[in-house]
Amino acid sequence: MSLVAIRDLAVSFDGAPALRGIDVEINSGEALGMVGESGCGKSVTWLAALGLLPGKARISGSVRLEGQEILGATPATLDRVRGGRVAMIFQDPASSLNPVHRIGKQVSEALSLHRGLRGAAARAEARRLLDLVGIPDAARRLDAYPHELSGGQNQRVMIAIALAGQPELLVADEPTTALDVTIQAQILDLLGTLRREMNMALVLISHDLGVIAEACERVAVMYAGRIVEEAPIARIFAAPAHPYTQGLLGALPPIDGERQPLAAIPGQVPDPRAMPPGCAFAPRCAVRLDACAAAMPEGRAVAEGHRAACLRAGAMERVLA
């Protein structure tokens, strides 16, 4: 059984759909990347799964954690899942830590909630975690406040907090976007190492396929609130089946080269309040068919472990083969 199975997850805010039926699974110890343009619903997927969206969000579908439904579960159940079984870290480490509490207290809080550690035991374990995530002089940093640390160090603290509950899955929502490039690489390395050592599954959210390629085995490509393609990372690069993924790859900067303005896909993401009835990408698609505008394409298997929601997916596979 998969660790987490999300089925037909749909979310809307004030009548505007943000997710329109997400299906995705993740196995124990696996690393899954989720990629897509800003606003496609990467964050909302996992915020919804963990019950972290504001009350005005309308949510439907199913999220199972080892078979147990957690969508709409009681607050007490969710509080045990969050941080204890599934932890989540966010994009902006500086504002994601509470400015008025010391680092040590923020780590210990999770230790006390999920492992019952208090006082000196909690402090010792918090210190060990700060060491583990590579914060120098951890004993002293326990008494520091977030504003006294750099962005990269704060993100390490966030990771330490996430590890405190010994979760089976860590969802890292653009953990390096706010950091500069050298720190980005360090944090990604750290996440990879920790995942292997602790046998923890990882969901890495990013709008950068390059980042995901470094840390993940499998990738789900999202567009306008749906997953349009899902495949092992090597296959995505070798044989992308969805025109949107192909566009993303075209927009990927050369690995060693300087970062240049990306060759963006022409056109715009459709307005969530006025979604086209067919494929949401069709209006921007260079190879669309008449049928694309008629009905939303279902995901179809292109190869083993590779699905794409495109009417041409099979055909393209043949062309590329």
Binding site: S96, E109, L113, H114
Partner: peptide
């Protein structure tokens, strides 16, 4: 509306304690 409130919830802190402590 601050991100650190979401962090506290994501950590498993019960809502009353999020309000009081964070």
């Amino acid at each position: 509306g601050q991100p650190y409130i979401r962090t506290a919830s994501a950590k498993g802190v019960p809502w009353r304690q999020v309000v009081r402590g964070h």
